[in-house]
Amino acid sequence: MGGLLRKIRGTGRVAEAAPPRPEADPLPAARELGGSVQVRCVDAGSCNGCEIEIGNAFGPVYDAERYGVRLVASPRHADVALVTGPVTRNMAEPLRRTVAAMPQPAIVVAVGDCALDCGEFAGGYGVEGSVVDMVSVDVSVPGCPPEPAAIVTALRTLTGR
């Protein structure tokens, strides 16, 4: 117990200074969210590279939470579906059902090249298509895998903070 306290006092604040707010005008749906975004990550068949980056985005260093973004367990609770990876044949129907389960206004963010244009896995026998083909994507974060900062910036455009 004591050791942990000393460690906490020692490390102090880990989160880096918040970069300036992105100027891009927020989406009409995002404006309704009013600075509170609840995110449900959906892995539509990614190689988990993007998942690691999303993890880092919510880690102490990038700390996406400080901008009002929170990960939640069920699409019912979520406003944003953070979709990664090319959509495999098995994940096509579940992805559609997850997006349908989210109450309006709902936003889909496609993370990583695979989500945009199937990236490395284009033409794979198991791949149904990219996320863009499957569901209407509002925001996309290119990169393989995209920087955590890029993901955080994308999310900040939704919260507006």
Binding site: T98, A100, A101, P103
Partner: peptide, 14 residues
């Protein structure tokens, strides 16, 4: 006045 939507039960996509 959002109308209450009838949705399928959330089944983890299965």
């Amino acid at each position: 006045r959002a109308r209450r939507r009838d949705a399928r039960l959330w089944d983890c996509g299965g």
